[in-house]
Design a protein around this nucleic acid. Structure first.
Lengths: 125, 125
DNA sequence: TTTATAGATGATCATTTGTTCATATGTGCT
DNA sequence: AGCACATATGAACAAATGATCATCTATAAA
């Protein structure tokens, strides 16, 4: 909750602000959500996750599929791992990565809907 | 499509790679998706969007609700606008912002599910 | 126990990002 | 026209990010 009185600006609709503040989740939740989405906010990681939607893959496979260096993939896998977006199992020297849960697929589906639905260009101005 | 032969590494499961590459969407889609998620990947923007889920708000209101500077909010609104995540209407001097479509709410719902479902700490190591 | 391979990790560096400060628009009022 | 207010925008800068390179660890085979 932010102190209302600290705002110097005059145009505020106090009731609205108070109502929304009441509904607003805490700072920690906002940060967690942002972290999750940020993890999905990179082309390399998007490709990794989408690849894993088809089937589990080892790091080498991922490297070949998305056309990035092994190190880059490995670094990005760490990010995804730390947010529990992917998991892995070991088989000899090879690590097989897969999606950690079903949420990612749903998030992607929603995201794709938004992206593909927009026919017009971005209104950058 | 990435050239398979260019990969020097030996551990590849060729059939898997080929299958996944076939299913994988294009570079442009991956980038668009990543852009969308990146836009959601910041606490300030998360708060703005969540606030707007309750009702339309002017910039001043948003400033008060999320406790950021007017300039910061304005800058972030531009990002959200450029990705068509929010829209606005003018009423005199005041601009009322609102969510551009229903996708965002669904994305947030999914994201919150993932975030709140995880009881354990992040396995950072 | 040496060697090779799959993968992880740390340092480095250029790029991107988000905030702040100062200034510019646009609208209504007088 | 002149002023005030709501908001936008550009410059500047510190902080975060992502790729690369070099190095390290773990496992398997010889």
């Amino acid at each position: 909750m932010v102190e209302l009185d600290r705002c110097e600006i005059n145009c505020i609709h106090y009731e609205a602000v108070k109502a929304v503040q009441h509904a607003l989740f805490g700072e920690d939740v906002a940060v967690s959500l942002a972290e999750l989405f940020k993890a999905l906010g990179d082309p390399t990681r998007v490709k990794i996750l989408f690849s894993l939607m088809t089937r589990e893959l080892c790091v080498c496979d991922l490297t070949a599929v998305i056309g990035a260096s092994e190190s880059a993939v490995s670094h990005q896998l760490r990010v995804l791992r730390s947010l529990r977006l992917v998991k892995f199992r070991r088989e000899g020297k090879i690590l097989y990565y897969s999606l950690a849960d079903a949420h990612i697929e749903k998030l992607f589906a929603q995201g794709l809907e938004h992206v593909t639905e927009d026919k017009s260009e971005k209104n950058e101005d």
